[in-house]
């Protein structure tokens, strides 16, 4: 008996994993239902939906990149103080003094770029499959919200290194908000927190980037996946006609 099997057979193991024998279909379904992490998945799914050609796995790619961003982001947070006097130096410190600091920062940056790509491609793929149609209309709307959240997360993170690239991109971006009729000036002021991009802007963008937007993101992602699971076995007569 392997260690894993021995653990599953023990009193402790059985209390942790309620359905240790995942051998028959029935066991697997029961194990699936009793697993917190698997509850975002349906138990069964149509065969055509498991293949690459159906979804190109862009949704799961986006989620994997989000996970990578959370992990690398938390690592970077240990070394970063969001203030104009320290931020730039912290990034230099991360890149030169922290073991693997430059690498983790690269991972964070590239994950962010790829996530924007993956989310946009996911949207296009869902469109061309017609997968936003009844009864899944609202999940498409949630998906658009997630695309906007992804862009906002990316943009708020862009300011944090406090270099010329960051400073002027955010100056231009927040000036753009001021053109919204009626509320624009107020929105721009609240984003910048003063007359020009400065320490108030940096802390605001930091809080948005590491606390507010990720929290909202996790909730909306959960909603998106939950609706996907609920709708996964729904079918319409039009699906039946598909030649694919």
């Amino acid at each position: 008996m392997t260690i894993g099997k021995r653990f599953r057979a023990s009193t402790l193991g059985r209390s942790v994993i309620r359905n240790p024998n995942r051998v028959t279909t029935r066991d697997r379904a029961a194990g699936h239902w009793s697993n917190f992490f698997l509850h975002i998945y349906p138990v069964k799914i149509r065969r055509k939906e498991i293949y690459f050609r159906y979804s190109w796995f862009l949704g799961v790619a986006s989620l994997a990149l989000f996970g990578s961003l959370v992990v690398s982001g938390i690592y970077l947070m240990f070394f970063y103080v969001p203030s104009p006097t320290t931020a730039y130096g912290n990034i230099q410190f991360i890149q030169t003094q922290v073991p693997f600091g430059q690498y983790i920062r690269n991972v964070h940056r590239w994950s962010a770029h790829f996530m924007v790509l993956a989310v946009a491609a996911h949207m296009a793929r869902v469109f061309y499959r017609g997968a936003y149609k009844s009864p899944r209309e609202f999940n498409w709307v949630i998906g658009v919200v997630l695309l906007v959240l992804t862009l906002l997360l990316s943009f708020t993170g862009y300011l944090l290194p406090w270099d010329q690239l960051a400073y002027w991109a955010v100056t231009v971006g927040t000036s753009m908000a001021a053109y919204v009729p009626i509320i624009g000036e107020q929105v721009s002021n609240v984003l910048i927190g003063g007359q020009e991009v400065g320490s108030a802007t940096l802390i605001r963008f930091y809080v948005l980037h590491v606390a507010l937007l990720p929290t909202v993101g996790v909730v909306v992602i959960a909603l998106h996946l939950w609706r996907w699971r609920k709708d996964s076995m729904l079918d319409t007569e039009h699906d039946q006609q598909e030649a694919m």
Partner: peptide, 13 residues
């Protein structure tokens, strides 16, 4: 929340 985040006069130059 909105009012809290509005920049005060002190934060201008």
């Amino acid at each position: 929340g909105w009012d809290l985040l509005r920049p005060s006069a002190a934060s201008s130059l």
